[in-house]
């Protein structure tokens, strides 16, 4: 199902340097939105504003609104924990904790106070199935997560995010550190999750954006240059900067 997100004039400063300038865009429930653009263009900052991970950084300041179901989740009084349960995140480098596979997936549930063994087992299995990892780790849930391959670790991180029951999944270059085969599996997984979750995917891999996303947004120098259906962005971009970026990159 997922969730509609309306971003309204979002600006972010890091220690005086403006990283995001007045970004306004909508993400539709259940779609995969790809964010592309050169390094340092503000894509990751945008992602981190959506689940307020920016708040962990003392040097960051922001203005603007992010509306979910009519509520501004950036408002100081909004419950940050509740927000992060609805908006899961997967990072650039797989970051499973140095615990067992089971404990990694159960981590978020236990935070919420779920200690019932049966319920935990059920959700862990279901999340691993959704993340297409179950068949590989079945019967090995007590093994350390760090013994898994990089691609498996990233799918474990996806399972860990799914276990909390989010409606939105933020993915920050999830395949940047993976080999092509693992990358393909993650992309396939994103395809399977489409429709059930609203997915915002930051990627440097333009082919990936073209393959998996419904719509694509192009960022440059902290501003949103243009956003539209992926096919349109890649074939007939409206803005010359988008075309420059796409052609420059596509040819290499």
């Amino acid at each position: 199902m997922g969730l509609d997100i309306h971003v309204n004039k979002l600006s972010v400063w890091y220690r005086g340097h403006q990283a995001l300038r007045q970004v306004s865009l909508d993400v539709n429930a259940g779609e995969v939105l790809a964010l592309i653009g050169p390094s340092g263009c503000g894509k990751s900052t945008f992602l981190r504003a959506l689940n307020r991970l920016l708040d962990e950084d003392l040097g960051a300041r922001r203005t603007g609104q992010v509306m979910m179901e009519g509520v501004d989740v950036l408002a100081p009084e909004h419950d940050i924990t509740a927000l992060r349960r609805r908006v899961g995140m997967v990072f650039q480098t797989p970051n499973p904790f140095p615990f067992s596979i089971f404990d990694n997936v159960a981590y978020g549930l236990r935070l919420q106070g779920t200690n019932d063994a049966a319920a935990l087992r059920r959700t862990v299995e279901e999340s691993l199935r959704q993340a297409a990892l179950w068949d590989e780790v079945r019967g090995k849930l007590r093994r350390p997560a760090l013994a898994l391959s990089g691609g498996q670790q990233q799918r474990l991180c996806i399972a860990r995010a799914l276990a909390v029951g989010p409606e939105v999944l933020l993915m920050d270059e999830p395949t940047a550190s993976l080999d092509p085969l693992s990358t393909a599996r993650i992309e396939e997984l994103i395809g399977n999750l489409r429709g059930r979750y609203t997915i915002v995917l930051v990627t440097h891999n333009l082919r990936q954006a073209a393959r998996v996303s419904d719509r694509t947004a192009f960022f440059a120098h902290g501003s949103l240059v243009e956003i539209g259906p992926t096919r349109q962005i890649f074939t007939v971009p409206q803005d010359p900067r988008t075309e420059e970026y796409l052609t420059g990159r596509m040819e290499s």
């Binding site: 924990t81 995140m89 981590y107 978020g108 236990r110």
Partner: peptide, 25 residues
């Protein structure tokens, strides 16, 4: 830092991150 971010992104409060992740690690 990636562990801390990972824990926070799952909805852990700083104290939960400390007790359940940082101290064990």
């Amino acid at each position: 830092r990636a562990f801390r971010d990972g824990s926070a992104a799952l909805g852990a409060t700083p104290d939960q991150t400390l007790v359940r992740m940082e101290l064990p690690c």
